[in-house]
Simulated scan of single mutants.
Amino acid sequence: MQGISRWFCHMSSVLVCWVVATVANADTKNAIPVKVGAYEYGVVYFFENDKPSGFTPELIADLNAIQSKYFFELVETSSRRRYNDLAMGGFDLILMESPDWDWRDQDVLFSDPIVVEYDLFIARKEDVPGPGWFDDITRHELLCVLGFHYKFASFNANPEYLQDHFGVLFHYDEQQLFDHLLDGEGDVGIVSAGFLARAYAKNPELSQRVFIGPSPDFSYELVAVISKQSAISLAEFNDLIRIVKREGNIAQEWRDMHGNLPTG
Rank of each mutant, 00 (worst) to 15 (best):
D92R: 14
A61I: 01
M96H: 12
A61V: 03
L86P: 05
G90I: 06
T77V: 05
A65E: 12
D92E: 13
E73R: 14
F72S: 01
M96N: 13
E97W: 13
M88E: 15
S68E: 09
R81T: 10
N84I: 13
V75K: 07
E97D: 12
D85H: 10
D92V: 11
M96A: 14
L63R: 06
G90F: 00
N64K: 08
A61M: 05
R82T: 02
F71N: 15
M88G: 12
I66Y: 11
K69V: 04
A65H: 10
L74S: 00
A87C: 08
A61K: 12
G89C: 11
A65F: 09
G90S: 09
V75T: 02
R80T: 11
N64Q: 06
N84T: 15
D92Q: 08
T77W: 07
L86A: 06
D62R: 10
Y70C: 00
Y70S: 02
N64C: 01
G89S: 13
A65P: 09
M88I: 12
N84P: 07
F72G: 01
L74D: 00
K69Y: 02
N64D: 05
E73N: 02
F91D: 12
D92Y: 14
M96F: 13
G90Q: 07
T77F: 08
K69E: 07
D92F: 14
L74N: 01
L95M: 13
D62H: 05
E97S: 10
L95K: 00
D85T: 09
F91E: 13
G90P: 10
S79D: 06
F72A: 01
S78W: 07
R81P: 08
A61E: 14
Y83L: 07
L86G: 09
I66P: 08
D85F: 04
S68L: 01
E97I: 10
S78Y: 06
A61F: 02
E73I: 04
E97R: 14
N64H: 07
